[in-house]
Design a protein around this nucleic acid. Structure first.
Lengths: 221, 221
DNA sequence: CGGGCGATGGCACTCAGTGCACGCCAGGCA
DNA sequence: TGCCTGGCGTGCACTGAGTGCCATCGCCCG
């Protein structure tokens, strides 16, 4: 029933546009009652994002379990869960991307979905950084940066119709964030002509990590 | 007329809640026709954010003019414009904050407003970083981080009913971001005590630049 | 004084979303 | 077998946001 409604909805959305399709059209095509639509989807927008609720639950569970000695790495891995959901069904994801790009209402809805992911990441980081000076600020900024990097890579993959290696692109983007905010060492990547690199490491950081970051910052990693 | 509608709307929103107030109620209190409401505000949500359109225009203009030798500093200053708008009218801002916190629809709308600010910042940074390796990625991440830091400080100020120094809080938050992503030097600010610093400089870098970067990294710039 | 003209108001309409009650069907029980 | 019950789907009527269209009114200009 759910799947039938999603299928009917997307057929019509792609055929004649989102705003030009009414809920009555969808239920007529799916052969079900109008009232049933709103049983399965609280709003017309929800039918466009049928799998985010599950993915958000997965992310929350992921953040609540397992090792977490490196919070930044953990939230990067959590973000990758979202990419996996998109990559599960590239054709569907690309179609939805085109739809959300040209329908302001859907873009706004997507923002609220992304916001919930970001709050999940930030909530995890806040608890991990509790007690640190500016821990909450740091948590919010890192969560925002991770989401931005992930979405940057995801969108460029979607724009290329799902061709190319999405995972590699996301890994590359997240690596930038991880590098800028890593919990152990912070390689300084500057924007201008990069003839000077400064690396600052905490006392107590494993030497091999410092060496690794140095090599990476110097482009010889 | 605009102001009258905003005043009437907020009186009712605070009195009996946002969702419990219809547009008919607002126009009845303001003594104008229902059709005129939608002339001034495209939707019921817009009446809650009557000044963001102007602020966004101000920000866009600010980014398009003046010096821009340090892009990160520039976008931080642009973000401060938003704070100024909030600080112009603390009582109103606090009321609106309480409203948006408890009405999901308004929160979603606010997200789309924030998103437009973020895209303005990112667009500026994208043009400044054009040509750099991963320039677009860097632009998006920095814009997201700046917005997150700004909002973190802004919200904690709003939560305290507009007491305290909002500008100082935002300056502090933005300084974290500026430090992490500065265009010239990138001091690595981590959460803990930074009592050891390792400096690596590329062969061929001017010595004065190395000294400069080191001082900056050590927070003595 | 008459003719635009821009701002306002009224009216009817579409469509999303909701509350309510009815019908249907499956399963437990005497 | 007949009955009760609880959940699921459905039809219906209603509210309220948002829109298109046209009438109206005040105002400036020739």
């Amino acid at each position: 029933m759910r799947d039938a409604l999603v299928a009917a909805a997307f057929r019509l959305f792609l055929e004649r546009g989102y705003e030009e399709t009414t809920v009555d059209d969808i239920v007529a095509l799916a052969g079900v009652g109008r009232r049933s639509f709103f049983r399965y989807f609280p709003s017309k927008e929800d039918v466009v994002f049928p799998d985010h609720e599950r993915c958000l639950a997965d992310m929350t569970e992921f953040l609540a379990t397992g090792a977490d000695d490196e919070p930044v790495r953990k939230v990067c891995d959590a973000a990758r869960l979202v990419l996996l959901m998109y990559a599960e069904n590239p054709a569907f994801s690309v179609q939805r991307y085109r739809l959300t790009r040209q329908v302001p209402g859907l873009r706004a809805y997507e923002l609220s979905v992304v916001w919930r992911y970001e709050r999940a990441l930030a909530g995890y980081l806040r608890s991990r950084y509790a007690g640190l000076r500016d821990g909450i600020l740091r948590a919010d900024v890192i969560a925002a940066a991770v989401v931005a990097a992930h979405n940057n890579a995801l969108r460029s993959w979607l724009r290329s119709d799902g061709k190319g290696d999405a995972e590699a692109a996301v890994d590359h983007a997240l690596e930038h964030v991880r590098a800028a905010f890593a919990d152990e060492a912070v390689p300084a990547v500057t924007g201008g002509p990069e003839d000077v690199v400064v690396i600052v490491a905490r006392r107590g950081a494993p030497l091999w990590r410092v060496v690794q970051e140095a090599e990476s910052a110097l482009g010889r990693g």
